[in-house]
Write a protein that binds this DNA or RNA. Structure first.
Length: 219
DNA sequence: ACCCAGGGTCATA
DNA sequence: TATGACCATGGG
């Protein structure tokens, strides 16, 4: 079932080439800035950082709050995100940067990320999957909504429960999982923006067949 | 004018 | 454990 949905989405939309970003660090910054925010707004904020050569953990931690917040303004919640970006960069530097962090086991790295103020489960998993290429399945509101419509989940399960469900249902080689999870989450987001938002009945949606299947089996 | 967007923290019960 | 308030910009 989960494999089938993936196959359908991939066939319909093609590879999404996620995450947008030239370096792992840029991916991490994007993960924080995109919290509850449209990606187009994040691009402007990252553009501001680049324009001031501030897409750099050392620069971010030493830039005054007012100034950093001003660069982040387009991405919304700029005061909050300035603090979150700072606490993240402080941790990132203190732990020796990307190459040192890459030596940690996935579970350890995940715990450390979650201990950073401003990094919750979804942001941590974005970073683990798209910056560190670890096999973790990202659960977001789109994922809950899609699979709720398909009748696989209620949608109110705790984050960890859903993550375990997807990771166990999609067991292949570790390298394969990274590629699969990367594309799967990106396709779910793409699909959410594309088709099913308009019509709950899934008109013109590539998963219409799957929805029909659910209807005839359900009830 | 209203709703939503690639969430998380904190206070409260 | 589980709600609710709060953060704030830009596009439809």
């Amino acid at each position: 079932m989960l494999h089938g949905v993936f196959r359908t989405l991939l066939e319909c939309y093609g590879p999404q080439h996620w995450w947008p970003g030239e370096t792992p660090f840029e991916v991490m910054v994007g993960a924080v800035l995109t919290q509850n925010t449209a990606w187009t707004n994040v691009e402007r904020a990252i553009g501001n950082l680049k324009a001031h050569r501030a897409l750099d953990p050392a620069v971010i931690v030493t830039t005054p709050h007012e100034r950093l917040a001003e660069w982040l303004r387009p991405s919304g919640y700029f005061n909050v995100k300035a603090e979150r970006l700072r606490s993240f960069c402080a941790w990132y530097r203190q732990r020796g940067g990307h190459d040192e962090l890459a030596k940690l086991a996935t579970a350890t790295l995940r715990d450390e990320l979650l201990a950073v103020k401003g990094i919750g489960p979804e942001t941590a998993d974005d970073i683990l999957l798209y910056a560190f290429e670890r096999p973790v399945f990202v659960i977001d509101a789109y994922t809950r909504r899609l699979f709720q419509r398909l009748g696989l989940v209620t949608g109110v399960e705790p984050y960890e429960e859903l993550r375990a469900l997807f990771e166990q249902a999609l067991q292949i080689s570790e390298a394969g999982q990274v590629t699969l999870f990367n594309e799967y989450h990106a396709l779910i987001v793409r699909h959410a923006k594309e088709a099913c938002r308009r019509t709950p009945a899934c008109g013109g949606c590539p998963l219409a067949q799957t929805c029909e299947l659910k209807r005839s089996h359900g009830a």
